[in-house]
Amino acid sequence: MTSELAFREEKTDDSIKVFLSGEVDIYTSQKLKDKLYGIIDSTENDLRIDCSELNYIDSTGLGIFVGTLKRAKQHGKKIYLSNLKDNIRKLFVITGLDRVFIME
């Protein structure tokens, strides 16, 4: 019925990279929140989020990204978003979040 949200995680010397795949919506967003908040709370490194396999996100998911960014800033960390598909980048532009996040 839906493309399930999935994660893959890679650790480098100075950051943690999370690869998102599937869809983030009102049903799967709690899973994303738990994952991203968990990483921010458990590491000193910056967070890099690869969205190359992320097919869909809604305002709920964007809200989770914003919440994660606020949390990261409180801990003096940065968040980088990379490889966004056009349909997802469009939502960042519409909402002005493209100016809030570091987009690679």
Binding site: M1, E23, I26, Y27
Partner: peptide, 9 residues
């Protein structure tokens, strides 16, 4: 929430 994807489809 689990049926919002049905609306999208």
């Amino acid at each position: 929430a689990e049926y919002v994807s049905v609306a999208r489809l």
